[in-house]
Structures are given as structure tokens and as C-alpha cells.
């Protein structure tokens, strides 16, 4: 393992992961305090003032527990330490708009978001990479060029805008697909039931299509550009002069060398992909983290907003980490090259 992934490199990447998570957590802590407010306390106080009686008592209780959780009676650095401890304990406080701990809400929604994001990114990446590579290889093919250009043109439009149009045509006008939810209401989650899976796919189809159409073109574009560069390089010419078979030339020489920049592109795009999936979910009312985020914003449920954002960043951080670790396997030069 250490021979494949050099230790120094591994530690370096781990440091980045920790830094990313720390920055994300600290932002959550610092931003409201920079703005000179405590949105959660404000909201709770507002609630307390607006509703009295039995429920008012409940809100007063909530305020107390919030003070304790956030360590508001301690000095600032104490609050910060308390805050980081809470994070490490996976304790993100309480969502008052949903009357449940933030962790419960987010952990229910996260798999749906990651499922949607993971599968569409995988398909889109594979499809776009394949199409882009092929179009660089067979530049004379008309049909191929037209379809790749079309994909590239679509990639210009943000996926949630494509989603808007698809929702209107496919779901509302043609009524081919459901317009909201992750499965038909009333159904129970049953991982062993094929019909349940089909129902899930049916519900995810249009959001997935929007993401697919909105992103595949950018992979194709990147791949085509890099493939054209690699195909023009000296080592491809020399391999051809060696008389290697065409298939080997494509796979072991061209594709193998393009995969590293292409994977880097993937890693660099994860952030915008998460933004896209969040917005697409909202457009379709697909109940992943994005939709939770939207309702949290509507309800000014700041704890929940923070929780959603933190978990999305955590997922991205981990995905980036995994991709980073795969670089040395894709390119032996990586551990020697100075990181620039």
C-alpha cells in the first residue's frame, strides 16, 4: 500500500481533508458572530414572544437547552471549543422547525442526495469521457460530432435550469414522471423489493436526467481537449512507430494518460456538482439535503442550514480525498512531482 501511495503524499492529503472540515466547521461558528448576531437565539426568542401558554414553555426549554449546547455562558474561546466538541460528537444541535435533532434530519436525507449525486456523476462522467475521447479519436465522424457538440451546448446551462424545463415538459405536460418525492407516498422502504427500487428510479429519473444533461458535456469537452493533446504527443507517435495494435494504442497509451487530468477535473468539479444537485433537488422537490436546506432557509432554521452545509462539505471532502489518493495509482510521477 505504501509503495503505491507514498506516505508523505497520504499525510499531505489527510492534512487537507482535516483543514477543509475545520474551515467548514469554523465558518459555521464564525460567520454569525462576525455578523454580530445569533440567528438561532433570535429565532427562538421570536417564537417565545409570539406563542404563549403550554407551547411557550416548550420554547423556553428549547432556549435553555440551546444555551447549554452552544456554551453561551462561557467566553468566546470556550464556546468555540464546545462547538468543535459538539461537531466531533456528531451533535449538531436541534432543528426547531422539524422538532428533531439536526443529525436525524440530515442523516435521513443524505443517502438520497448522495445516491442521486453518485449515480448521475458516475454515468455522466463515464458517458462524457467516452464520447469526448471517441470524438477526439474519430474527428471526421459527423453524427458523433453533432451529438457531442449538443452535449457541450447543454453543459453551458446550469443543471437546475435544465431541470426546470424538464419538470415542465416531462413531468407536468407529458405526465411521464412524478413531480416530487423519492418514492410513492405510503410505500415503505424495503431494500429487498425490486418494485420499490423501480419506484425509486422512476422518481429519481428526471432530476437525474437534468444533472446528466447538464454535466456530461463538460466531461466530453475536457476529455476531447486533453485527448487531442495526448494524441499529438511524441510517445503516441513512437508507439505507433513500434507497430503496437490500435486497441493498445488507445487504451494503454492514450486513455491511460488522459485519465489523470480527467480525474483531476472530476475532483475539481465536485463542489459545483454538489451545488447543482442541491438546486436540482429543490427544483423537483426531491427530498434530499437540498430540499431540506430550502425549507430550513424558509423557516430560518439556522441550525439545520449549518448542519446541511457541513454534511455536504464533509461528503465532498471525503470524495476529494479518495480521488486524491487515486492519483498515484493513475500516474507514477505524482509523488515525485512538486505539488503545484
Amino acid at each position: 500500500m505504501t509503495r503505491l501511495i507514498p506516505l508523505r503524499y497520504f499525510l499531505h492529503r489527510t492534512l487537507y481533508l482535516v483543514a477543509v472540515l475545520w474551515v467548514a466547521a469554523t465558518l459555521n461558528f464564525v460567520l454569525p458572530r462576525l455578523a454580530g448576531r445569533d440567528p438561532i437565539l433570535e429565532r427562538l426568542t421570536e417564537l417565545e414572544a409570539s406563542i404563549g401558554g403550554h407551547r411557550g414553555l416548550w420554547v423556553a426549554e428549547a432556549i435553555d437547552s440551546y444555551r447549554e449546547w452552544a456554551g453561551l455562558n462561557q467566553p468566546l474561546w470556550g464556546q468555540y471549543v464546545q462547538y468543535l466538541q459538539n461537531m466531533l460528537n456528531m451533535d449538531f444541535g436541534y432543528s426547531f422547525s422539524r422538532n428533531r435533532p439536526v443529525w436525524d434530519v440530515v442523516s435521513y436525507a443524505l443517502p438520497w442526495t448522495m445516491g442521486l449525486l453518485g449515480t448521475t456523476t458516475f454515468i455522466s462522467f463515464a458517458l462524457g469521457t467516452f464520447a469526448g475521447g471517441l470524438s477526439a479519436w474519430r474527428r471526421q465522424d459527423r453524427l458523433l460530432n453533432v451529438s457531442v457538440s449538443l452535449l457541450m451546448a447543454l453543459a453551458v446551462i446550469p443543471p437546475f435550469i435544465i431541470g426546470l424545463v424538464l419538470a415542465d415538459t416531462l413531468a407536468f405536460r407529458l405526465k411521464l414522471f412524478p413531480i416530487a418525492g423519492m418514492f410513492t407516498p405510503g410505500r415503505f422502504v424495503d431494500l429487498g423489493d425490486i418494485e420499490w427500487w423501480l419506484d425509486v428510479l422512476h422518481h429519481a429519473a428526471v432530476p437525474a436526467l437534468a444533472l446528466l444533461l447538464g454535466t456530461a458535456g463538460s466531461w466530453a469537452m475536457g476529455m476531447r481537449g486533453m485527448m487531442v493533446t495526448v494524441l499529438g504527443s511524441d510517445f503516441i507517435a513512437f508507439a505507433e512507430a513500434k507497430g503496437v495494435k490500435r486497441l493498445r494504442l488507445i487504451l494503454s497509451y492514450a486513455i491511460r494518460n488522459v485519465m489523470l487530468p480527467q480525474t483531476t477535473l472530476l475532483a475539481m468539479s465536485l463542489g459545483s456538482l454538489v451545488s447543482s444537485v442541491t438546486l436540482v433537488e429543490i427544483m423537483f422537490g426531491y427530498p434530499g439535503v437540498g430540499s431540506i436546506l430550502e425549507s430550513a432557509i424558509r423557516a430560518f432554521d439556522y441550525n439545520l442550514i449549518q448542519g446541511c452545509v457541513f454534511f455536504l462539505i464533509l461528503s465532498i471532502g471525503l470524495a476529494t480525498f479518495v480521488l486524491d489518493l487515486s492519483y498515484p495509482l493513475l500516474d507514477p510521477r505524482i509523488s515525485y512531482r512538486k505539488q503545484t
Binding site: 487537507y16 474551515v23 467548514a24 459545483s272 451545488s275 438546486l279 462539505i313 465532498i316 471532502g317
Partner: peptide, 8 residues
């Protein structure tokens, strides 16, 4: 900052 989605 490049790893953290700017939109979030």
C-alpha cells in the same frame, strides 16, 4: 476553498 463548494 476550492474543495468547499462556493455555493454553500
Amino acid at each position: 476553498l476550492l474543495t468547499i463548494p462556493s455555493f454553500l
